[in-house]
Design a binder for these strands. Sequence first.
DNA 1: ATAGTGTGCAGTAGATGATA
DNA 2: TATCATCTACTGCACACTAT
Length: 228
Amino acid sequence: MSDIDMIDFDGIDLDLLVALDVLLDEANVTRAAARLGLGQPAVSARLVRLRRFFADPLLVPSENGRGMIATPRAAALRAPLKRALLGLAEAVRPPEAFDPARRDRRFVIAAGDNAVVSLGPALAEAVAAAAPNLRLTFVQPRAGGLAGDLERGEVDLSIVSERVVPPGARVVTLRREDFVAIRRKDRPRDEAPFDLDAYCTLDHVLVSPSGALHGYVDEVLERLGRRR
DNA sequence: ATAGTGTGCAGTAGATGATA
DNA sequence: TATCATCTACTGCACACTAT
C-alpha cells in the first residue's frame, strides 16, 4: 500500500480542490464563481464543504467587508495545492510536441544585471528567430523570494548564481565565471604590488540588491582567514 | 441486457443578513 | 444604498437497485 492509498479522501474531490485553488487566488467567492463558470451560491457551498473537510474557516471576511482573507492554514495550502494541480494537469494533458514556433506566451526570467547584459541580447535574438510569438520579460530575482516566485509560476526561469538556487529546483549550469581584479594602467610605479594584502586594505563598494553587506567575496576571504 | 424507479447530490434563482 | 456571503426552495441529473 502506497502513501497515497493511506490518505482518506472521503469528502473531498478534484472539483473541490480546483475551487479551493481559485478561491485562494481570488479571495472573493463571487469572482471565483465567475472564473469557475458556476453560480456564486454553488461556490459558497463548495467553500462550506472545504471548510468541513479541512476543519478550518480557510477564508474569512476581510475587515473592510470587501473580499476575504485566507487563514494561515489556507495560506499554507496554497503553494502545494497549486503545484499538485499543475502536476495533475500536466499528467492528463494529451501528449503534444512543444513547438516554439507556434506557441504564443510570455516567459518571465529572473536574472541579475550581469546575466541580462551578458546573455539577454543573444537569448532574445535566438528566441525571436525560433519562436516569434514568445515574449521574454526579465525581472530582478527577489532576495529570498525566488523559490516562492518559481513555485507560484510567477517566474518561469531564473539565471542566477548557484549559491542562490532554491533547493529542489532543476538546474542547468550555463557557464563558469571567474572574478578579475583590474588596476588602472597609470598607477605609480613604486606602488606596492596588487596582491591579496593590498586588496583587503582598500576601500570597497558592494552592490547588493538585497541590502546584505556580506557577499560571495567575503565568504571566500573568510575561508582564507581574511576580511576586507 | 434493458427499462423503470427511487435517492442523493449539486446546480440555480431569489431572499436575507451583514457591513461599509 | 451597494456589495457580498449565506440560506432556502426547487430542479435536473447521475447512479444504484430491481423487475422483466
